[in-house]
Write a protein that binds this DNA or RNA. Sequence first.
DNA 1: TTGTAAGCGTTATCAT
DNA 2: ATGATAACGCTTACAA
Lengths: 375, 375
Amino acid sequence: MRPRAAKQRAVTIRDVAAAAQLSVTAVSRHFNNRIALPVETVARIEAAASALGYRPNVAARRLSLGSSESLGFVLSDIAHPFFSAIASAAEAECARLGYSLLVFSSRNIIENEIAALRRIESAQVDGILFMTNHSNASEIAETINRVRNVVLLDEDAPDAEAPRIYARNREGGRLATEHLLAAGHRRIAFVGGQEGLISSSERMAGYREALETRGIPVDPALMLLAGYNSEDGEAAFAALDLLDEPPTAIFAAADMVALGILRSARGAGLSVPEDLSLVGFDDIPNADVIGPPLTTIRQSAEAFAVRGVQMLVSLLNGELTQDVVEYVDVELVKRSSVTQPRQRRHWRSAPRGASPKPKTAAKANRTQKRGNDNE
Amino acid sequence: MRPRAAKQRAVTIRDVAAAAQLSVTAVSRHFNNRIALPVETVARIEAAASALGYRPNVAARRLSLGSSESLGFVLSDIAHPFFSAIASAAEAECARLGYSLLVFSSRNIIENEIAALRRIESAQVDGILFMTNHSNASEIAETINRVRNVVLLDEDAPDAEAPRIYARNREGGRLATEHLLAAGHRRIAFVGGQEGLISSSERMAGYREALETRGIPVDPALMLLAGYNSEDGEAAFAALDLLDEPPTAIFAAADMVALGILRSARGAGLSVPEDLSLVGFDDIPNADVIGPPLTTIRQSAEAFAVRGVQMLVSLLNGELTQDVVEYVDVELVKRSSVTQPRQRRHWRSAPRGASPKPKTAAKANRTQKRGNDNE
DNA sequence: TTGTAAGCGTTATCAT
DNA sequence: ATGATAACGCTTACAA
């Protein structure tokens, strides 16, 4: 009957009650209810509790209350600078509201995302802040609708009944592209996240919009879908490098992608922005100290985080319906990775590559995942 | 008696048992014990469980088992690139071992660190990976000794009985300084973390050691204690900038500090490494894409993380004693933030500052916390 | 105002 | 092999 004895019996509410010569009810009331106990009673309880070093057992509370007072945060990787900025702010807001935060890295694996979601069913967390990279997976939407108590962050999951927070992605895409246009660029590439992500396709829509407004034809060879990590940027650079007429500027749908492009460009002997202008998206921490300081579209990680947990908590309290959508503003941050295009010159004719074999970019619409093949 | 009804009664082990026409014991056994149930029984249980969508309630398990199967990670801020790299790897290792990870940001507030530690007492987590910035606070050591089941990461807490993992800080400090020395620098500053941190003082010890080996006198005006964030680097730069004879190189005890210094140096019109060589510590992600790519001492975030959780789990299982200490290797990563010293020139005589008032650095051993006063 | 005891969903002991 | 049932520590309806 006694389960494997905990190494050292913790002090329970009953111990406190005994020490204070009161019932457990009184002690429980003191620690939860606002029911005013007589001062003398309170004093006895506090004395006993602190003498014994009493800490309410949260598992027991959860079981009894039916609520865990903790929230989950599902993202692809905590080490991603923008995501970790969100996680940091979310943790702070959780703490402020009396919640704990469980972090689940999905590593972009859909099964992990679903498994994380199911922790609502096992009562491990009351609700989940959910960032996915598989917006098109119907299984995710189904799971969300079953477990309920999910707030979608940054990315959609069509058919899911859940409140959402998006950045103004299209506007951001437009802003970025217009900035490049204003600098004189005409051949501007777009490098987005993996196919199907609405954040990516919205940013691309903004890009097209800006181009079309200026009457500049949209070249499909210049629009790549890769992913949101720096390796994806490297792969994209490699693909773009194969074009007969490479772009003079790139709008990367995420700063990490821009960093990957930058890394590859440097490796290829190109300098940014002289040989290639670059605009990112996110404004990750330290983007200002990159070489060169990265021009980017800022979206507030904090806004995502604090509104996200606030909405989730409201949802849990039944104060919010599933159909709410909020938007996070974006803003162009001009730094030094953009300048006017220099006289057109092929990347491949840069210092090291002597005589490259000209090659048409066949299907530049999908790039391989790892990009160690650049230069 | 019925607690505030959960919005929608979840399916319990009893429901499954009923559906499978078996006892709860059988179902429980199936989900935990390796006791071989007859295939037919197993089939009935699985059918019932999946038909009902059963998920064991973790709170109940915890209460019964006396273990939460989750670990805590206490750090000052998840958004710090090096810490988030550790958190990411720790989460992965936790997941591999069947644990969940709760993240607690202390924001460098000692009360928060202690409150987090006490979550062991409330049975919210089984154990904690602990990174502190208050190694000298005796209250922390006392709490650790009381709650037990803590592994110290990266920083000491004297008198705490807990396994520890340190980087080879002194060696790192030596490596960094020797590298600067080899480049021809003689006036090398050290900018460390807040006073009392052994990681910082060990790195400084390595710095002194390298200097002394070369017979170069250690100038106290060149040794600053600040903190591990980028604002601390900015403050340090400001203090160093006031010296009559500023250093030609700086060894910053953390990459984030180096980034702050870099930011300030740029703001002051200095260029790195031409006017000032810089070496960091940590090798944070994307340090290679900083302007200029940062030369630094690499320590493996992953090593900290995976050994940390492994040690913690061993400790929980009683397979590890509190007196174990492990070390994480360090390594010099040469990039582009170091070059030989140029003809000595005062920072203040750089492009913008025309005629500065010469001033002796009074007590350069403490720098103010926020450094918005530079340039 | 205070206390008793039921019940939250599991696990594990003990008997069958 | 299988099943009743007593814990685990808490909250709270209900009684006093």
